[in-house]
């Protein structure tokens, strides 16, 4: 027991250290603005987790970050660096929205949501699978291929949107049927009234649990992690490394394909060009800060959720970019202190 505690402690030290370091930097910045750091932090917390509207908004912002972080973490555990979250999420979200829009109105609510989810997962998964396939077959590095694919997918989706799917005079798709809407959390918890937090958050938490089970409780996850740690030992043990790489990238892409769930099924009810603004990339920071563990990812996503909502709150006193800087510093500190990234990049054959 005491050994376990120690292990967990170690996992927490680096992220906590990174956050503390970032806080010190932001103190300095706040002081430069001739404001009191304590006052700003108090304001930030009061506006986010210490009032019910704030909490709802934080949950809303946390939800996509959970999927995004899980996507990156999943690939990481197999020794792969998926930077293609942006492309995968666009494809996934677009397909989710299109399915949602063209389903028959009479379809049962549950089924509609499941179909949208599945569509998003598979579409994102397909985009993730491509660099996985290329890596397995030709050995080309997934970092390059996922980045390149981001551009291709974004352009392709824009083309589809503009040419076939947009509501005239707008840059968004038709609204999804009402049976595909995810219920707002305020329906169950009235205190969260007027926030956008929806059941997508619950789906995100469930997904984190599923990811945990797959990676640590199944034979498949055992093999994936073996490949992640030592592909040669895995191959020697008869594990099909190429298959693991392709599957892992596909699942990672699938998870990224769900990033837009919150937005499409829970908030706007359509897909809109440029809605993401980097959510796919934020997953890298979330995964690293969360030590590539689903629980860590959820906590890290929440932290970034607080910061991103908090930025709006403190905007009245100091520029909200302060929070962006804070986030950036957290990311830098985490990246600098993780060996995983370096290891994978060094493996770039």
């Amino acid at each position: 027991m005491d050994k376990l505690n120690k292990k967990i402690l170690i996992e927490f030290i680096i992220p906590i250290f990174a956050v503390l370091l970032a806080l010190i930097f932001s103190d300095i910045l706040i002081l430069i603005y001739k404001e009191s750091p304590l006052k700003i932090y108090k304001l930030l917390l009061e506006g986010t987790i210490f009032n019910s509207y704030g909490i709802g908004q934080v949950i809303f912002k946390t939800t996509p970050l959970i999927f995004s972080g899980l996507a990156v973490a999943f690939a990481f555990r197999t020794g792969l660096f998926n930077i293609g979250g942006e492309g995968q999420l666009y494809m996934g979200t677009f397909v989710t929205a299109v399915i949602g829009a063209y389903l028959p109105d009479s379809i049962p609510r549950f089924l509609a949501v499941i179909l949208c989810l599945l569509g998003g997962f598979l579409a994102g998964g397909l985009i993730g699978f491509i660099p996985g396939f290329l890596k397995a077959k030709t050995g080309s590095h997934e970092v390059i291929n996922t980045i390149m694919l981001n551009f291709i997918v974004l352009a392709f989706i824009n083309y589809l949107l503009v040419t076939y799917f947009r509501v005239p005079e707008t840059l968004h798709t038709k609204e999804i049927i009402s049976n595909a809407h995810l219920a707002r959390l305020s329906e169950f918890i009235p205190a969260l009234d007027s926030t956008y937090a929806s059941l997508a958050f619950v789906i995100a938490i469930l997904t984190a649990i599923v990811v945990y089970v797959i990676l640590w409780k199944t034979k498949f996850g055992y093999e994936l992690r073996a490949v992640g740690h030592n592909p040669e030992a895995a191959a020697t043990a008869g594990i099909n490394v190429k298959k693991c790489i392709m599957m892992s990238m596909a699942i990672s892409g699938g998870l990224a394909g769900l990033i837009g769930l919150n937005y499409v099924l829970g908030d706007k009810y359509y897909f809109e060009e440029g809605f993401s603004s980097g959510l796919g990339f934020m997953g890298i920071a979330v995964a690293l800060l969360g030590r590539n563990h689903p629980l860590g990812v959820v906590i890290a996503a929440f932290l970034f959720g607080v910061l991103s909502e908090g930025g709006l709150v403190i905007n009245a006193v100091v520029p909200k970019e302060l929070v962006d800087i804070l986030q950036a510093i957290v990311i830098i500190c985490v990246v600098a202190s993780t060996t995983e990234v370096r290891k994978i990049l060094a493996r770039g054959k």
């Binding site: 055992y222 992690r225 073996a226 740690h229 030592n230 040669e232 030992a233 895995a234 020697t236 043990a237 008869g238 594990i239």
Partner: peptide, 18 residues
Amino acid sequence: HKRGLVLEYQNSDNLILG
């Protein structure tokens, strides 16, 4: 180290590798 073990795995996991 190269082919025999996943050093980051605990003994029980290495004992079933393959």
